[in-house]
């Protein structure tokens, strides 16, 4: 049994290393995409699009590995949560990588656009902020730091604010005639892509909280719905069970 557990934990460690590697690929892809965009570097954009295959390959491998361990070891409690979280993180990171590819593809669509200092600065700051969030999310995952993971939602406010500023700056630049409509639309989308990468980091944080504590933000909504259903049944006189052990933890 001891041997089996040892091998199980080695498997878990390897899966964690794989997730860290995926996150590293994402945090390296985002600044590259930003540089390709700002320097109108089509070669770099193409390299990024091709390099996403590595992320996809790793994602498929990790998913299979997780399924394999789930099927063979039938883990329970925190071990099960660690595996199900790894599956979820895998999907979040894979999607984040796709968003970096989207930025690279948008670079090709608006090739040759010149950005003023404000736009340039905002795009660079969004890229840095998205990467920072992703790094914090991975730190919280590796350290099992539920406090940091839960704080990511609030840390993300800054990126949301930058997204609003960036969209505003794009409209302004378009109004001033500095960029055409196609570029304006693409730049708004790019801004949204950065913001979505931040959202994925927040999702990772939520999963880390679940992995460590077993609690998910959705639990609150689910509990609320159960109470509502019960209350409705009581009103119609059909339900009799007023006892409930579901706690609401509304923030």
């Amino acid at each position: 049994m001891g041997e089996l557990r040892k091998s199980f934990h080695e498997e878990l460690d390897e899966i964690q290393a794989g997730i860290v590697r995926m996150a590293a690929l994402v945090t390296e892809a985002v600044p590259r995409a930003t540089e390709a965009l700002l320097e109108s570097n089509l070669e770099m954009a193409q390299q990024l699009i091709t390099a996403d295959d590595e992320l996809d390959d790793l994602s498929v491998y990790l998913e299979e590995r997780c399924h394999h361990v789930l099927a063979l070891q039938a883990p329970m409690a925190s071990d099960l949560r660690a595996l199900s979280s790894a599956l979820r993180l895998n999907a979040e990171l894979e999607r984040s990588g796709d968003l970096a590819v989207n930025i690279a593809k948008a670079t090709r669509r608006i090739y040759g656009t010149r950005y003023d200092a404000t736009l340039r600065g905002l795009l660079v700051r969004m890229s840095e902020e998205a990467c920072r969030l992703m790094r914090l999310a991975i730190d919280s995952y590796v350290d099992g730091n539920a406090g940091l993971a839960a704080a990511l939602d609030d840390i993300d406010d800054q990126l949301d604010g930058l997204n609003r500023d960036c969209v505003q700056a794009v409209f302004q630049a378009h109004n001033d005639g500095a960029i055409d409509l196609q570029a304006a639309v693409q730049l708004c989308l790019i801004s949204r892509y950065y913001e979505r990468i931040g959202d994925h980091a927040v999702n990772i944080g939520e999963r880390v909280v679940y992995m460590v504590t077993g609690w998910l933000p959705e639990h609150t909504g689910s509990a609320r719905m159960k109470i509502r259903e019960q209350y409705h049944l009581d009103e119609t006189g059909e339900g009799t069970d007023k006892e409930t052990d579901v706690e609401t933890d509304e923030e």
């Binding site: 290393a17 860290v20 590697r21 996150a23 590293a24 690929l25 945090t27 390296e28 790094r135 991975i138 730190d139 590796v142």
Partner: peptide, 11 residues
């Protein structure tokens, strides 16, 4: 022990 970009060196 790297968690970010440097994890790619280990890979």
């Amino acid at each position: 022990e790297a968690r970010h970009g440097e994890a790619l060196v280990e890979a």
